[in-house]
């Protein structure tokens, strides 16, 4: 478990990091190191140089943006859990985060590192999809924003270019009174999701006015379940929820492995989706 030799630079600021990335000389960003260092030790990644951004204050913290929020890419899971703003506006963030790794992982691991790593079984990506998060990317060439829904392009593959840095995650306001929920079934060894579902449900009087459902752990990337719209206009009764949940993995190429053969994982997707929708529905304001 000894990585190949590499250079290490500690960026003084974001500009510094962008410059290092612009060289396109095999430089890789390191934040908390919780996904990258294992890859280095297995020599699955062999970057020539690491640029460390984990300590940069300009990339850390949660700020209020009108009725939404902005999360610095290098904000640790622990900081997410301690944010009052997130607890008030997006309780689903704490719900998902408390189930990620253990204390040590949450103390060091960052939300940006997790999203950039794009593990197809990671928990947070589903929540980002459900919340319609916007990911702010920067490079020496400029700045752009990519919707989380476009960001994940496959297993460990994202819309980011080699020289881009994930700067922040912008969360648009949730529909007023919406309920949210994240439900996952954990792989016993890794704690990652065998199947995870993030749901946002808003009610307007007695009917559902808005519903999003995002899944993770099922296939090579997190995805939105289009059928969630079918809950809109219904009263959110168990049958209606079941009808939507049943389509949680419809048309999806489902992963199978020693922990969950494809048929089981497909089934768990349905159960996770149903439970998340139910919880979000109950949590939404009448």
């Amino acid at each position: 478990m000894i990585p190949q030799t590499f250079d290490y630079v500690r960026a003084r600021n974001v500009g510094d990091a962008l410059k290092a990335l612009a060289a396109k000389d095999g430089t890789k960003v390191i934040a908390g190191g919780h996904s990258l260092i294992p890859l280095l030790k297995f020599r699955l990644a062999q970057p020539a140089r690491l640029v460390d951004i984990g300590h940069l204050d300009e990339l850390r913290g949660v700020t209020e943006v009108r009725r939404g929020a902005k999360i610095g890419a290098a904000t640790t899971y622990r900081d997410l859990l301690e944010s009052k703003l997130l607890a008030e506006r997006y309780p689903i963030i704490a719900e998902v985060t408390s189930g990620i790794g253990d204390l040590q992982v949450r103390n060091k691991g960052t939300i940006g590192g997790g999203l950039a790593h794009a593990d197809p079984a990671a928990d947070m990506p589903a929540v980002m999809l459900a919340l319609d998060a916007q990911l702010v990317l920067r490079s020496k060439r400029g700045k752009r924003t990519v919707a989380a829904r476009e960001f994940f392009q496959g297993a460990f593959s994202t819309a980011m270019a080699e020289d881009e840095l994930l700067i922040a995650i912008a969360l648009p306001p949730l529909p007023r009174g919406a309920g949210t929920a994240y439900v996952s079934f954990e792989q016993a060894a890794s704690g990652y999701a065998l199947a995870g579902a993030a749901a946002v449900v808003k009610r307007s009087r007695s009917t559902v006015a808005h519903c999003t459902l995002a899944m993770t752990g099922i296939s090579d990337r997190p995805y939105l379940v289009r059928a969630a719209e079918q809950l809109v206009g219904t009263q959110g009764l168990p049958d209606a929820i079941e009808h939507v949940a049943a389509q949680a993995a419809a048309g999806v190429e489902v992963n199978g492995d020693i922990h969950a053969p494809a048929d089981y994982r497909r089934h768990l997707a349905v159960v996770a989706a149903r439970r998340a929708l139910q919880k979000a529905f109950v949590r939404s304001k009448k």
Binding site: A189, S190, I258, H259
Partner: peptide, 11 residues
């Protein structure tokens, strides 16, 4: 060995 690390071997 498919369970070659603690990510797959469930201690």
């Amino acid at each position: 060995l498919l369970t070659g690390t603690m990510m797959d071997y469930a201690v």
